[in-house]
Amino acid sequence: MQAIAAGRKATTETDADMASGGQQERKDGRPAGKAPARKKDPLSAPKRRRPKQERSRATVDQILAAAVAILEQGGFEAVTMQAIAAAAGINIATLYSYFPNKHHVLAHLARLRLDERLELLERELGALKERDDWIDGYGDVMRKLFVLREGQASSVALRQAMHASPSLWEIDQEGNARAAGFVADLLHAKFPAIRREDIDIRARLIAEYVTATLDFIQRNETGMQEKILEEIVALTASYLRSFAPAPERSPPASPA
């Protein structure tokens, strides 16, 4: 009897499961086995007005400066719209008239920083196409990029915030893709015999590697930043030299 009752229970549960399309409802109201809905991307919120007048641009500068100060003091989690408004000395409604959330504030700041770096890379790497000592020149570009990043306010804290937020991380990846394009143009000019798709892969590796290693240097507090930078420059130069085809060997001389 117990077996029959158990069988009836199993049949009832199976029928209910089939009637619901093979998914039973959980206690939280979601069908069993169904993944929770993805969180909405904070950057999908519509942008606010663009600052056209000098006064509006000054307000945006205040907002960004406030966000930088908060980042440096408390990191990504400390950045809130209320904290930004208070630090900028503006009304919260004024802040929302420019940015819908803190992610848009940080994204605006990140893109400004990124554009400065990309302008440097485009200019400097473009000039290397005409140089025979371009590999040594590439090391100089890495040094200039490091100096630029060091001079950008809250560079380390902003980079950490970009790692903490998937939506901000996408901006970083977009930047690396654009940087890789400049590197690829240089490599293609120097090694026209290498297939473009192979050049693109190597260029992206270099862009990702340089970004990651410069992040590491900036976080390093041992006083060895310059030494680490020179090691990275040397490693990059060695990798770039490996692209050149090996010289053809002369056939061995035949015995007399």
Rank of each mutant, 00 (worst) to 15 (best):
P252H: 11
E208D: 15
K227C: 09
A87H: 11
G33P: 05
T12Q: 14
S254C: 11
A35Q: 12
D17C: 11
D15A: 10
S97M: 06
A65I: 09
Q2S: 13
H103E: 15
M81F: 04
D17S: 11
G29E: 03
V210R: 10
V68P: 08
T59D: 08
E248A: 06
R204F: 15
A157C: 02
A179W: 06
Q24E: 06
G22R: 03
R196H: 12
D200N: 12
R38I: 05
R204Q: 13
L125Q: 01
R131G: 00
A3S: 10
P36C: 12
P255I: 09
N220E: 15
S250A: 15
D132W: 06
D140G: 12
L148S: 02
D41Y: 11
L128F: 03
L187N: 04
E150M: 13
G21S: 01
A88N: 00
V79A: 05
R195Y: 13
T94R: 07
E116V: 09
R57K: 15
F76E: 06
L112V: 13
L229Q: 03
D172F: 12
F182S: 08
A35E: 09
L214P: 04
I135T: 07
D61N: 14
F76M: 10
L71Y: 05
I4K: 14
G223H: 03
A180Q: 10
A107F: 06
T80D: 04
K102C: 07
L125R: 03
I4S: 14
K102S: 05
A88Q: 01
G137A: 01
Q152K: 10
R49P: 01
A78H: 10
N220P: 05
A6P: 00
M142G: 05
G139P: 10
G21F: 01
L118I: 13
R149N: 14
E170P: 01
L112G: 10
I217K: 07
W134D: 04
S165H: 01
N101A: 03
H108Y: 13
K144L: 14
L71A: 08
Q23E: 08
H104V: 00
V141W: 07
Y138W: 11
S44Q: 15
A16I: 04
Q62C: 12
L240R: 02
K144R: 15
I70C: 00
D132V: 09
M162W: 04
K40C: 10
A10T: 11
G74L: 06
P166R: 02
L205T: 15
K34C: 07
D15Y: 09
T11M: 15
E231W: 05
A244V: 12
H163D: 09
A189L: 02
D200Y: 12
G151S: 06
A203D: 15
A66W: 01
E150P: 05
A3L: 15
